[in-house]
Computed example of a mutant assay.
Amino acid sequence: MESQESRRIEASLTHSVEKDADTAQIADAMISTWQGINAALCPIIGQRGVDALYLRSLYLIGPAYPWLAGMHEGVHPAMDLVALKSLLAQQSSANALAGGAALLQTFYELLDSLIGPSLTERLLRSVWANSLSGLPAQDTSP
């Protein structure tokens, strides 16, 4: 059974990439979402907290997505969005979208288990709203 948040994440990703998007466009959309998550959560749980949840999410989805498995290891554990973008761009569009969605869903579930569904939804609401609204409207006033 699919959760409401799982559908919201999927809708957010689907909306932020075109129907026939290539892997570069998918990678860009994923990175934009992660940057939004980072911006929303860093003031609350700190960069190290965000990094820890991100790396744990990578570890948990590693068996299902072996191409993401090694990203949680390293001397300086941190959210490496450049490496994630590179890995996503090397996959087929379907794999990039599935792996990226699984990573986001796992991250959301971990955060939810720590701080509860209400606060998790409230903290990440702006991330989903921004990706669903697309690019901000340009100001055409003189």
Rank of each mutant, 00 (worst) to 15 (best):
V127D: 01
A11K: 07
A129Y: 13
T23D: 14
H72W: 12
T23C: 13
G116N: 08
R7V: 06
E10Q: 15
A52S: 15
Q47L: 05
M1H: 10
G70M: 10
G74W: 13
A83S: 15
P66R: 11
L104D: 02
A64K: 10
M30D: 00
T14W: 09
L110K: 05
S133G: 05
L60M: 00
I9R: 03
T33S: 06
M71N: 12
H15N: 11
A89Q: 13
D20K: 11
I61Q: 02
A52L: 11
P142M: 10
N38A: 05
R122S: 15
S113Y: 06
E10H: 10
S126K: 05
L124I: 02
N95K: 06
P66E: 09
T120W: 00
T120N: 07
L58Q: 01
S141R: 14
L81Q: 04
Q138E: 13
T14V: 11
Q25R: 13
A129N: 08
L110E: 01
G70S: 10
T33R: 02
Q91G: 10
W128H: 05
I37P: 02
Q90K: 08
A101I: 00
L68W: 01
A96M: 09
A64Q: 11
S86V: 10
A98P: 04
P136W: 11
W67M: 07
Q138A: 14
N95R: 02
A29K: 00
A21S: 08
V17Q: 02
E10D: 15
L53T: 01
S57W: 02
S141D: 15
G134I: 07
I44E: 04
D20W: 08
D28K: 08
A64M: 13
H15S: 13
I26V: 10
L97F: 12
G74D: 15
V82G: 09
P66G: 10
L111C: 05
L58W: 01
A129L: 10
G116V: 06
L97A: 06
I115A: 09
I45T: 03
Y59R: 08
A40W: 01
Q105K: 03
G116H: 08
P63A: 15
S6P: 06
K19V: 12
G70Y: 11
P77V: 05
E18C: 14
T106L: 09
A83F: 12
P77T: 04
R7C: 06
S57H: 03
R48V: 09
P43T: 10
H76D: 12
Q138G: 14
S12A: 04
P43G: 12
L124K: 00
D28N: 09
F107L: 06
Y65F: 12
W128A: 03
D51Q: 05
R122C: 15
Q35V: 07
M30F: 04
G46I: 04
M30K: 02
R56C: 09
N130D: 02
P43C: 13
A94T: 06
L97R: 04
A94H: 04
S113W: 02
M79H: 10
I9E: 02
A137H: 07
T14Q: 14
